[in-house]
């Protein structure tokens, strides 16, 4: 490899990782929005995946190939515990409850010594590779695309449009909601594990309210017509601040203005294409 290419790859290595990880997070949001659930626990699940996997690496010295699959255990277990009472909630009530759970977890990280408090966990070895990140992202997109095209996808879309009607038509609404929540926890947990193992440091403030809203914005910007749309949204929102670096102090202003214009003129997302199967309206 010529040195200039090596340098180029090294320079953008973290950005390349972040694009993949944020793509996984966008999918984790997508699976719950796809069944009409505004559940914002993704940042919390990500934090559980990141902390549990970092501790497995640092304290138990487990190999990464064991840590990566194990990193879904804690988030999924948490989702199982909170799922039943939480999934009875609808709309903003669900959104705020899941944000609240994330804030409770943040308080736990801050107050329990095992998690390092505000100092977080540092010195996490760089174990994840671009192949792993993009392999998982590709697999997740493929799986979600196949599910979306199948009968389950049709049922999910029916739930999104009108939950009561879907239930009357015999869609097992509760089971699908729980399934979506578990899938969401799994994807976010993996993303958390991968991001912890590429950036050497994790801290409690990375999994609170703001990241939760950021993850939601990936999907809102991209759209929910296909699994590709949220990933595109994540990529645009991850790249924007880096592309605007030249503007230094006002780059966040431009970032915000671009989002406003994108939503005003493309309210259904940047990629408002629908899956071929059903001709229904794509609505959030």
């Amino acid at each position: 490899m010529p040195p200039w290419l090596d340098d180029l790859l090294w320079t953008y290595q973290n950005l390349v990782y972040a694009l993949g990880v944020n793509g996984l997070l966008a999918l984790s949001m997508y699976v719950v929005l796809a069944v009409g659930q505004l559940s914002l626990g993704q940042a919390a699940f990500m934090g559980l995946g990141a902390y549990s996997s970092a501790l497995m690496t640092l304290k138990l010295k487990l190999p990464f190939l064991a840590v990566l699959p194990l990193s879904v255990v804690v988030p999924v277990a948490f989702a199982l515990v909170i799922g039943v009472p939480t999934l009875r909630l609808a709309g903003v009530y669900l959104a705020i409850a899941t944000i609240g759970l994330g804030e409770v977890l943040r308080a736990v990280y801050l107050n329990v010594d095992l998690f390092g408090g505000a100092l977080g966990l540092s010195g996490i070895p760089e174990r994840a590779t671009a192949w792993m990140i993009y392999g998982l992202l590709g697999l997740a997109m493929l799986a979600l695309w196949l599910i979306g095209r199948s009968g389950i996808g049709r049922a999910m879309e029916a739930m999104r449009e009108d939950e009561t009607a879907a239930q009357v038509m015999g869609v097992p609404v509760q089971r699908y909601k729980m399934g979506a929540l578990l899938a969401s926890a799994m994807l976010a947990g993996l993303a958390g594990c991968l991001s912890a193992h590429v950036s050497s440091f994790i801290g409690p403030n990375e999994y609170g309210f703001e990241p939760a809203v950021t993850i939601l914005s990936y999907v809102l910007l991209g759209g929910i017509g296909t699994p590709l749309a949220p990933v595109v949204g994540a990529w645009v929102l991850t790249l924007l601040p880096e592309l605007l670096r030249g503007f230094s102090d006002i780059r966040l202003v431009l970032n915000g203005v671009i989002i406003v214009f994108a939503v005003l003129f493309l309210p259904n997302g940047l990629l408002a294409v629908r899956m071929k199967r059903i001709g229904a309206r794509t609505a959030a």
């Binding site: 950036s199 601040p241 102090d249």
Partner: peptide, 18 residues
């Protein structure tokens, strides 16, 4: 600028060095 964000700080360092 890092905007107090870990990822943006890393990206900035890699851009400066690379």
């Amino acid at each position: 600028d890092s905007a107090a964000n870990k990822d943006q700080a890393i990206n900035a360092a890699r851009k400066l060095i690379g």
